[in-house]
């Protein structure tokens, strides 16, 4: 599905979108009008390309293959800023660490505005990253690398479930918990 956004520098890159899906194993099905690609809203018109309702659409060729592209991507400027902060992160400087952590937390919260219209997979990675940055006061080098990878994945308009699983595994391996944000819950392990 080629959209106006993709042609005007929006979040969905046309070439990347088509090639990635093709590599992932897709079929061209003529006459499909909407809803073929999970996580993408159907667009009724595409004036730029002159596409109509009968235009070929991309659908997954393998049942159960979960993938999605962002109808609108996450705010690229914020993502770049987050990676820049991580690249210059200095855990030896107490003041700089505090400021960088505050900046990262703020950026992640801001990213939710653009994540609102992104795919569920983008939202899941953002949630994993947020769990991580909210649960610590500083970051090790290995944690920084894992988070950078997460932010870079968020800039990718097309994500598959494997992206989420890999980031999750990396963050868990670095001591983060996907349940960290629930810390304020009562200590209730009972039935």
């Amino acid at each position: 599905m080629i959209t106006k956004d993709s042609m005007t520098g929006g979040a969905v890159d046309m070439a990347g979108f088509v090639s990635s899906l093709t590599e992932a194993g897709t079929n061209i099905v003529p006459g499909t009008t909407k809803g073929n690609v999970p996580g993408r809203k159907a667009r009724s018109t595409n004036a730029t390309l002159g596409a109509d309702e009968e235009a070929p659409q991309l659908v997954p060729s393998r049942a159960g293959t979960q993938y999605a592209s962002a109808p609108r991507g996450l705010d690229k400027a914020l993502l770049r800023r987050a990676v820049t902060i991580l690249e210059s992160f200095d855990s030896h400087d107490v003041v700089a660490t505090q400021l960088d952590m505050d900046a990262l937390r703020g950026l992640v919260v801001e990213l939710w505005e653009s994540a609102q219209s992104a795919t569920q997979l983008h939202q899941d990675i953002l949630a994993l990253i947020e769990e991580a940055v909210l649960s610590v006061t500083s970051l090790s080098q290995a944690q920084i690398l894992a988070l950078k990878e997460g932010f870079r994945d968020l800039a990718n308009p097309i994500l598959v479930q494997v992206h989420v699983d890999l980031i999750r595994d990396r963050l868990i391996a670095q001591g983060f918990s996907p349940l960290a944000l629930l810390s304020e819950l009562a200590d209730d392990g009972s039935n």
Partner: peptide
Amino acid sequence: TRMRAHLRVAVLNAYS
């Protein structure tokens, strides 16, 4: 949206 994403991530990844 944010809360739903966190809940989903927490529940689906808790076993991992």
